[in-house]
Amino acid sequence: MSESPAIDPTKIREVLAHKHGRPLVSCCWDPRDRFICFGAENSAAEGYDDLLFRLALASAGTPDAVVPCTGGHDSWAWSLAIAPDGATLVSGGYDGRLCWYDLAAAAPRAARAIAAHDGWVRCVRISPDGRWVASCGNDRLVRVWNVADGSEVSRLSGHESHVYHVAWRPDGSALVSCDLKGVVKEWDAAGGACRRDLATAAPLWTYDKQFRADIGGARAMTFRADGAQLALGGMTKVTNAFAGVGQPLVVVLDWTGGEPRLVEAKNSGNGVTWGVAWHPAGFWIGLAGGGGGGWLRFFKPDAADDFHAFKLPANGRCMALAPDATRVAVGMADGSLRVYALHA
């Protein structure tokens, strides 16, 4: 058994660049480290089967490494989740559907597709024990489903605007959700009750008076491994919503309460934090993308600023950490999926 390399984000380097061609919108790393799945903007050439793909890491770079996951969505697959045992991929799309795939099948085809939300499904996340999948969307609902058969477990209502993200606490004790206006709710996933509203992530939301529109929401949300903190990614200090003029932001909430801590990307220009992940070596990773280009940012739990930032070759739109935490994958607007090693 090989020894794990020493993690050092300042030594970050590209180890894989898969050129898909169409801009990517979502990605997810197989917990068994065999595949990375990704969603892309659809194209005329391939029709609706050109939406969701599986990249086999062992054969990356060969013509057979990528296969489409077909028969599910008829719009972009915006959010992906893979069960802890690596058996099942669940995707949520702009079409309001959740689709189930046998991840390891030679040619994955949707085994189940359900109309889960009225409008865009913005996030799907599978519980740590692999039993349930939570979804949320523009119908202001959070819904919980059985991974095994797609039956509904609970329907959680209470948000008053589009629900942008959901996350399971690592011990499975709670499900949280965040909406367009930064309202964060903790739910009893089985019973359907809202337990509490956490400290609001209000800095993630702005009503632009000139353009008369809301901009905000958690574009990324995840717990620290010990469940003590919840990190939410988005945009703040918006001065022109429609041009995307604002700062990428990560809001860190303590699970036990207290004021939220704001970690702004001070040196990466305008943009949105599209991805956030906790690294077991003791730091957060944030993915920023926008007018200021794409950046991976690294910051400590108690710090207000990055200890390192890495400029990407294009705008990053989605991010996934490898199960062994040695690499991070970024789906990009230039149609590439790039993998970076977090060590020398």
Partner: peptide, 8 residues
């Protein structure tokens, strides 16, 4: 819909 420009 279904084109490279069509959006979601």
């Amino acid at each position: 819909p279904g084109t490279d420009t069509g959006g979601p």
